[in-house]
Design a protein around this nucleic acid. Structure first.
Lengths: 249, 249
DNA sequence: GAGGATTTGTGCGTATGTATG
DNA sequence: GCATACATACGCACAAATCCT
């Protein structure tokens, strides 16, 4: 149950413990009032000195996850991992639903470019077709959750960057360009260590983990509309594939 | 493009550089023969001492990603990731199909126990019901790919451990106990650093990443049969959810 | 094949970060 | 806060293997 810690692998114990506490919070480590066990008990549970636990708590307090009060204890400020559903009707804001008060997607960059090989394959385009690339950042209550790069055929979706930028919704932007509805065709999922751009945009610690999904969305006739790569902060979200709700007939 | 490195964040520079090199490989860091730039050049590019780059390369070599040869250079060992499909009919051997000559699942442990809260919830059982726990290891061509822990209701599936152990197939074991077919109801996916048991059973380097899936399988009447937690070696597999093939009607 | 250039492997001394009691 | 031990990172020097002219 308790993650076992290892020395000498390039990640300091206090950071492993910080990650362990963060994960533990989602699993009932804190009591119903949000109070963590005392430092001495955490130290024993993780098998380290209390100094080390204090360093971990200090880091989490600096991130805004915990708050320590002398004489009272240490309390959790934010609790659960967000659940991000994956299915036919996957959309950012709708998916997170009522798990956060405010879910929004913000455009942080765009460019026109010639499609790379795998983009042409995903969108079923001819080699070298012009495409629009859009970089966006998804937040839940202000906390960065995901970072996406999407590609669209340039001729078919001229002006989509402006539409997305002004509405903050990909669904709305596509609707404005004649795609009334769309469906997730396929999703591939991998996990890797965060790159520099991930740590910067998602405000992660170096060495953190990102879940990478590659997806293709099609319109109702089955024609590819959008392909995208999304990196999720692995300690903030959990992907859920509800097979039965999709395929159960 | 040049990764920004930071000291004193609890993650050693050599590990940040290892992650940077791994990411760079996917982005054309190595030339067409798979050769990396010399250590001296990498050191200058990352702004660190050559010793530090060497520590990063040593870690990647230990993981099997790189291979150094004195006087010649450092080369990328490319190995393709296995694609593991997730859907209604997810099964270990059938899923990997012809990607490996030999895919097998081996039982490495079993026990009878009282169901934990989340197991009773997943299997729709009363609190404290007896369950059988089965630990297994999935291999493709002898290389460990996944490590699973599954739970079954003890009364309903008495002897399942022996059946699974002798057949090496969960599908066959369930068939022998009256479950002709079953379907994946839901899958949740997260990612974290490998724990000690992961590094041991899956033969991973410390600090490697595992993808964790939690799944429930139901029989054709929709009654839960099995719930399981599976840890995949993130650098050996990629999960693919084919939404359309499942839900597209 | 000889010799120089390139590249990885090794040793040592020192300063700072991490972890313990 | 202090003392101690180990991990990390640097700088310099040189050895060993390989490549090229």
């Amino acid at each position: 149950m308790t993650a076992r810690l290892q020395r000498g692998l390039g990640v300091a114990l206090w950071r492993q413990i910080a990650d362990g506490i963060r994960a533990g919070i989602a699993n009932g480590l804190a009591d119903e009032t949000g109070r963590l066990p005392p430092e001495a008990e955490l130290a024993e549970r993780f098998g380290v000195n209390r100094h080390t636990v204090r360093a971990a708590i200090a880091a989490l307090a600096h991130e805004g996850v915990l708050e320590s009060q002398q004489g009272r204890g240490t309390y959790v400020r934010r609790r659960k991992r967000l659940i991000y559903p994956i299915g036919e009707r996957t959309r950012f804001s709708a998916g997170l639903g009522d798990q956060a008060r405010d879910t929004r997607s913000e455009m942080i960059g765009t460019a026109n470019e010639s499609a790379a090989a795998w983009v042409t394959a995903a969108l079923d385009l001819a080699t070298g077709t012009g495409v629009v690339r859009i970089e966006s950042l998804g937040r839940a209550d202000g906390i960065p959750v995901s970072r996406s790069t999407s590609w669209f055929e340039a001729d078919r979706f001229e002006g989509i960057a402006e539409l997305f930028s002004s509405t903050g919704s990909m669904t709305a932007a596509l609707a404005g360009l004649g795609v009334a509805d769309y469906r997730r065709a396929s999703t591939s999922i991998e996990a890797r260590h965060a790159e520099e751009a991930d740590t910067r945009e998602l405000q992660l610690a170096p060495g953190a983990i990102v879940i990478v999904t590659r997806a293709v969305n099609c319109d109702l006739s089955g024609r590819p509309v959008q392909c995208s790569v999304t990196r999720f902060a692995a300690d903030r979200v959990e992907l859920v594939v509800d097979t039965m709700a999709l395929g159960g007939k």
